[in-house]
């Protein structure tokens, strides 16, 4: 029973043009803007990547994760540990691989927990890692935290995160139309039915979790280089988990949701985070409450309703 998915040549061409435009714009932009705007862009791309990575498991398969900070922290730590011996690009890539592998291995036991149990598990996950690493450092090395001496890296970080953002955004669209993506959506709708239809749910879920970990880990590695200092409290900070989930829910369940939500909120982030961090986080909480209670489909839902009425 083959289902032919019509992919008009037009849309593929449109996609390639968009990618080309993106590359042209964002590689030339740094020459025209202030360094302040550049750091805003880094933040923006970083948040888009994190939220999109989150979406691979939580958006498609419905396994909501409150523990994005876990993979970010792991990625940051790996980079901090090996940056002296490994060329930096490989460092970051390796961080992603380690985080992804942990996602794959951990995924098998963890993803047995369904629905609310999984959410609660991820809520405690980042803290579990932080605690474990902190104890390890206390016991074994008698000091926590690492300083990274690498000099001025902003251009390279910018370039990397820009390309990674492109990569993961395209990846999400590809996944959406792939068998993998359809399987994940089936899992979200009715996992038992999906299983009986022949979908290898354990593999798919773990794979999605692995990809999420990979990209969030890479991001963590880049963040380590950006901040030049890594220690348990800051890299496993719950702030990351909160930001990702609010951006995801603000954007809504559509495939472009993460893009939408993180773009909007990254502006708020740059405005408030430096001077009024507590207010920023309180605002995030209020936004999430409003969305859960009144706008469960987020901005993408609003857009969809508007486009229906036009």
């Amino acid at each position: 029973m083959g289902k032919v998915v019509e992919k008009p040549v037009g849309s593929k061409l449109k996609g390639i043009l968009l990618i080309a435009a993106y590359l042209i714009v964002f590689t030339t932009l740094p020459y025209f803007v202030s360094s302040y705007f550049l750091s805003f862009l880094i933040t923006l791309f970083s948040l888009v990547t994190l939220t999109s990575a989150w979406y691979i498991l939580s958006g498609f398969a419905g396994y909501i994760s409150l523990g994005s900070a876990a993979f970010i922290g792991i990625g940051a730590y790996v980079t901090a540990l090996i940056y002296k011996n490994v060329p930096l690009p490989l460092c970051v890539l390796f961080s992603g691989c380690i985080a992804g592998t942990i996602g794959l291995l951990l995924g098998y036991p963890i993803l047995r927990a369904r629905g609310p149990y999984f959410i609660i598990l991820t809520y405690g996950l980042a803290e579990f890692f932080r605690n474990a690493i902190q104890n390890w450092e206390n016991l074994v090395e008698h000091l926590t935290g690492h300083v990274i001496f690498v000099g001025y890296l902003i251009p390279q970080i910018y370039l990397s995160i820009m390309i990674i953002t492109l990569f993961i955004t395209v990846l999400i669209f590809i996944i959406k139309n792939s068998r993998f993506g359809r399987g994940l959506v089936l899992i979200r709708e009715n996992e038992d039915a999906a299983e009986s239809m022949g979908v290898n749910t354990r593999l798919y879920k773990s794979l999605a979790f692995c990809l999420c970990g990979f990209f969030q880990g890479i991001n963590g590695g880049l963040l380590a280089l950006y901040w030049s200092y890594v220690e348990p409290f800051s890299v496993f900070s719950s702030v990351y988990s909160v930001e990702v989930i609010v951006m995801a829910y603000l954007g809504g369940p559509a495939v472009y949701g993460p893009l939408l939500g993180s773009s909007v909120l990254s502006v708020v982030h740059v405005l408030l985070w430096a001077s009024y961090p507590y207010f920023y986080l309180i605002l995030l909480g209020i936004i999430l409450i409003i969305i859960v209670m009144f706008f469960s489909e987020g901005l993408s839902g609003v857009l969809r309703k508007l486009s229906k009425n036009l």
Partner: peptide, 24 residues
Amino acid sequence: KETEKSSILFTFALSNIVINAGLL
């Protein structure tokens, strides 16, 4: 439809607000 999920997200946001208000 999913009481647990909605309440988790809601109270998660609430806890966030309360913690940061407390820190302030």
